[in-house]
Design a binder for these strands. Sequence first.
DNA 1: AAAATGATTATG
DNA 2: ATAATCATTTTC
Length: 226
Amino acid sequence: MTNSFEQGKNKPRFTPHSSLPTPLDPFLESPARLIEPNWCDRPSTQLAPDLLGCTLYRQLSSGMLIRATIVETEAYAPGDPACHAYKGLSRRNAAMFGPPGHSYVYLIYGMYHCLNVVSESTGIGSAVLIRALELNAIPSHLTPKQTAKPHRIAAGPGKLCRALAIDRTLDGILYHPDNGLWLVHRPRTIPKNQIVQTTRIGITKAADKPWRWYLKNSQSVSKLAA
DNA sequence: AAAATGATTATG
DNA sequence: ATAATCATTTTC
């Protein structure tokens, strides 16, 4: 399994590693806290706000474990012209039509990857884009420039994939510790007034749909409030 | 404001 | 075959 982060000069070498022991982690000591496919089997407009405050884990082949809180999401739904699945199944978007609770990773603008959580049952093309994370630590493979402002390291869908060494080799996988990428439920409930709902970013089609959500006081969202 | 950078999709 | 698009980020 090769990962684009392994190629090219100055790029770190990372591959998901199933042979590593499951990391010791307080949130995983209760197995029920792992987010499973059934929980994701509903419309992306419901799943997206519910993913705020949940934890995304990434384990690299080095053994390094990155823990991150999801602070910004967007929903992409069937019948939504901005959704990659809108024009039907293709090689790129196949994971969107796959089972819920799996990943959809795509390359955008030739240089950044974006990470999604697939929602709804197999055959329905919908997903939630993870747009920003708050990291618990600074990944060692990033440059000093990239880590100059720690709370901005994963503030944006392309930046968070860079920070977590996520590329298309992780497309279509089940979110699970065995795959080096998994999700865990919120450690505590989030008051509704801490969640802001607005329009999506960076799209021209269906730009009026209010399908972006973020945590109100987070300094790690892709676009800070004015 | 505009470049960087490449896969995917639309068009001839 | 060729052009246009693209759920972005950084730099000038």
